[in-house]
Measured scan of single mutants.
Amino acid sequence: MGMPNRKYADGEVVMGRWPGSVLYYEVQVTSYDDASHLYTVKYKDGTELALKESDIRLQS
């Protein structure tokens, strides 16, 4: 078993793309699913969504 190939840690605050949009919002990573390679993130309004790594970026 190798290390999970994840870029962002639980609790890390990053920018997540809103689905169907080009806009990124501040989100907190809450979990990562090794099987689906999706991150569960929480937006400031409390919305929780699963995002692909390509829809997440570090805060500038």
Results as ranks from 00 to 15, higher is better:
residue 1 M to G: 14
residue 1 M to F: 05
residue 2 G to W: 10
residue 3 M to C: 13
residue 4 P to W: 06
residue 5 N to W: 08
residue 5 N to S: 11
residue 5 N to H: 08
residue 5 N to Q: 12
residue 5 N to T: 13
residue 6 R to Y: 03
residue 7 K to R: 07
residue 7 K to S: 05
residue 7 K to V: 10
residue 8 Y to G: 01
residue 8 Y to E: 01
residue 9 A to V: 08
residue 9 A to H: 13
residue 9 A to F: 11
residue 10 D to C: 05
residue 10 D to V: 11
residue 11 G to M: 05
residue 11 G to N: 06
residue 11 G to P: 01
residue 11 G to T: 03
residue 12 E to V: 07
residue 13 V to P: 03
residue 13 V to A: 06
residue 13 V to S: 07
residue 14 V to T: 02
residue 14 V to N: 01
residue 15 M to S: 06
residue 15 M to R: 05
residue 15 M to N: 05
residue 15 M to C: 14
residue 16 G to P: 00
residue 18 W to N: 04
residue 19 P to G: 05
residue 20 G to L: 06
residue 20 G to E: 06
residue 20 G to P: 10
residue 21 S to L: 05
residue 22 V to G: 14
residue 23 L to S: 09
residue 24 Y to P: 02
residue 24 Y to I: 03
residue 25 Y to K: 10
residue 25 Y to S: 07
residue 26 E to G: 02
residue 27 V to D: 00
residue 28 Q to E: 13
residue 28 Q to N: 06
residue 28 Q to S: 09
residue 28 Q to M: 15
residue 29 V to M: 01
residue 29 V to K: 00
residue 29 V to Q: 00
residue 30 T to L: 15
residue 30 T to F: 08
residue 30 T to Q: 14
residue 33 D to G: 02
residue 34 D to S: 13
residue 34 D to M: 09
residue 34 D to K: 08
residue 34 D to Q: 11
residue 35 A to N: 13
residue 36 S to D: 07
residue 37 H to D: 11
residue 37 H to M: 14
residue 37 H to F: 11
residue 37 H to N: 13
residue 37 H to I: 03
residue 38 L to M: 13
residue 39 Y to R: 00
residue 39 Y to S: 00
residue 40 T to D: 02
residue 40 T to K: 10
residue 40 T to I: 13
residue 41 V to D: 00
residue 41 V to T: 02
residue 42 K to Q: 10
residue 42 K to P: 00
residue 42 K to F: 07
residue 43 Y to Q: 07
residue 43 Y to M: 15
residue 43 Y to S: 10
residue 43 Y to E: 02
residue 44 K to R: 11
residue 44 K to G: 09
residue 44 K to T: 08
residue 45 D to E: 04
residue 46 G to M: 04
residue 46 G to Y: 04
residue 47 T to E: 05
residue 47 T to K: 08
residue 47 T to Q: 10
residue 48 E to M: 14
residue 48 E to F: 13
residue 48 E to C: 10
residue 48 E to A: 07
residue 49 L to D: 03
residue 49 L to K: 08
residue 51 L to C: 04
residue 51 L to Y: 02
residue 51 L to S: 01
residue 52 K to G: 10
residue 53 E to Q: 05
residue 53 E to V: 05
residue 53 E to L: 04
residue 54 S to K: 09
residue 54 S to Q: 11
residue 54 S to E: 15
residue 55 D to P: 00
residue 55 D to A: 06
residue 56 I to A: 01
residue 56 I to P: 02
residue 57 R to T: 11
residue 57 R to F: 12
residue 58 L to S: 15
residue 58 L to H: 15
residue 58 L to P: 15
residue 58 L to K: 15
residue 59 Q to H: 15
residue 59 Q to P: 15
residue 60 S to K: 05
residue 60 S to Y: 12
